[in-house]
């Protein structure tokens, strides 16, 4: 009965989205925190882009795990962070707003954190984030560099131990509006995520 009902509702589900990709990660320990920045490819599916166009906020998440490598045992997790980037369209102005939240204050596009408000123009700060004239521009801006300062709860022994960061980019379904959430879980067009990739943490 469930299958039949679903088939009735989603006969014309859009084609599956392309996967996100983590192109590069730059991370360096700075005192009691890690300065983290990732270069990403974040192609949204047609349906997700349409959702943004229709005023639905879509939040992308960058899940970061800090692991200490161990030779004869599973790697030990030392910390987990999530950097969130909310994408939505400002209907009155027709611009696309990007707001980045991270554990230590996120940032993107090589600019400082947009805590002071959005910037307009091509990556201009305006209000509480940045706004862009097009979705592609916003995504391109996010992909150029999504960073955060990750606070450490314990000091790392970089000389003696080896550490790595496991990074994965996903769409945070929990942040979607409730009616869309279940749909996003089952619809192929919302399955946008990168593979978990590991990046060594240099001293």
């Amino acid at each position: 009965m469930v299958t039949a009902a679903v088939m009735v509702i989603i006969p014309a589900a859009p084609a599956a989205a392309r996967d996100f990709r983590i192109v590069d990660v730059a991370a360096a320990v700075d005192g009691a925190a890690i300065d983290f920045r990732a270069v990403l490819e974040l192609p949204l599916s047609e349906e997700a882009a349409e959702a943004v166009d229709k005023g639905i906020a879509v939040t992308l998440g960058l899940n970061i795990d800090l692991l200490r490598e161990r030779e004869w045992w599973w790697d030990k997790g030392l910390g987990t962070w999530q950097v969130r980037a909310e994408l939505r369209r400002h209907r009155p102005s027709g611009r696309y707003l990007v707001r980045v939240d991270g554990p230590g204050g996120g940032g993107s596009g090589g600019l400082d954190s947009g805590n002071g408000g959005f910037t307009s123009g091509n990556g201009e700060a305006t209000g509480n984030g940045r706004s862009f004239p097009s979705l592609d521009a916003a995504l391109e801006h996010l992909g150029r560099g999504l960073g955060a300062r990750l606070p450490l709860t314990e000091s790392l022994q970089l000389r003696r131990e080896r550490y790595r960061l496991k990074v994965k980019a996903v769409v945070l379904f929990d942040m979607l509006p409730a009616p869309l959430r279940l749909w996003a879980y089952v619809a192929p067009s919302w399955r946008m995520a990168s593979r978990a990739s590991s990046w060594p943490l240099a001293p």
Binding site: A5, V6, V8, I9, K54, G55, A178, P179, L180, W183
Partner: peptide, 22 residues
């Protein structure tokens, strides 16, 4: 915007209700 948003959410909403009902 709210109207367009609802239009977009129509199908997921139906799906959600039907699945729940089922």
């Amino acid at each position: 915007a709210e109207y367009e948003r609802l239009v977009f959410l129509r199908r997921p909403l139906k799906f959600s209700f039907v699945v729940t009902l089922t």
